[in-house]
């Protein structure tokens, strides 16, 4: 395991519009997220949560400051380069899952790998593994409208995990789910972190944010506070936790 952060934001600002109409969405935010860390971001509407997630995912570019993902600064990259980085390293889980209704669960999970240029046979195997990891091997052949909301969200997580993706960006992944099912989703994300993946979670529900190693409170585009312990000690104690398991274990 590398001690370099998987995500590093340095003095990142994002201003929408310019001149007198300029609206700052994020103001000089600096943030490191380590491998195996689950970080939750909380804040009211308009506090910059989604902007933060989009910048980390390379879906948006900062007005100033630098975003580094998996050791690669995003500022110098072309749109094509960004798309490639996103595909290789980043998985998304949104509230409105964006599963494609005409594809089976397995086909939905295969899709990003096929876009990566992986052959269908291998993509199907990997999708099977990813679905098994989220406990859904038995619904691989079903269509999204044939499974429950909680199962659909787990398919979306399997899709976010498939292949080499070690960074998961989750925007309100527990959206419309009941609380036990929401707990299952967090349990799953937590297990992925304990196996070495990194998760950045945006949520407005304290009960789910509390699954994180660190909770960051955004107010008006700034980090108002966080439950952070110093990064070094957080990392050490995470490695001492018996539940965290081997960090070297890949997604298979």
């Amino acid at each position: 395991m590398s001690f370099d952060p998987v995500v590093r934001l340095t003095d990142v600002s994002r201003v929408h519009g310019d001149g007198p109409q300029a609206v700052p969405a994020l103001r000089e935010v600096s943030l490191d997220i380590a491998a195996g860390e689950l970080v939750a971001v909380m804040g009211p509407s308009g506090s910059g949560k989604s902007t933060l997630l989009n910048l980390v995912g390379g879906l948006d570019r900062p007005t100033s400051g630098e975003v580094v993902v998996a050791g690669t600064p995003l500022s110098g990259m072309t749109a094509g380069g960004l798309a490639g980085l996103r595909r290789r390293h980043v998985g998304y889980v949104f509230q409105d899952l964006n599963l494609i209704p005409s594809l089976t669960a397995a086909e939905n999970v295969m899709l990003p790998r096929e876009l990566d240029g992986v052959r269908a046979g291998r993509a199907r195997r990997e999708a099977g593994d990813a679905l098994a990891e989220v406990g859904l091997a038995d619904v691989a052949g079903r269509f999204p409208d044939e499974i429950s909301g909680g199962q659909r969200q787990r398919v979306a997580i399997a899709r976010a995990l498939v292949g080499e993706r070690r960074l998961i960006l989750a925007d309100e992944p527990t959206g419309a789910l009941d609380t036990p099912t929401g707990d299952d989703i967090l349990q799953l994300l937590r297990a992925r972190c304990d196996a070495g993946a990194t998760v950045l979670l945006v949520t407005h529900e304290p009960r789910y944010a509390a699954w994180a190693d660190r909770v960051i409170f955004l107010r008006d585009g700034e980090i108002a506070d966080s439950t952070a312990t110093p990064l070094e000690s957080a990392r050490l104690s995470a490695e001492r936790t018996p539940a965290s398991g081997p960090r070297s274990g890949g997604e298979a």
Binding site: P206, A210, W211, A212, V215, D225
Partner: peptide, 10 residues
């Protein structure tokens, strides 16, 4: 208080 309550929740 919010940060303290969140630590308790964690």
């Amino acid at each position: 208080q919010r940060t303290a309550t969140m630590r308790t929740l964690q």
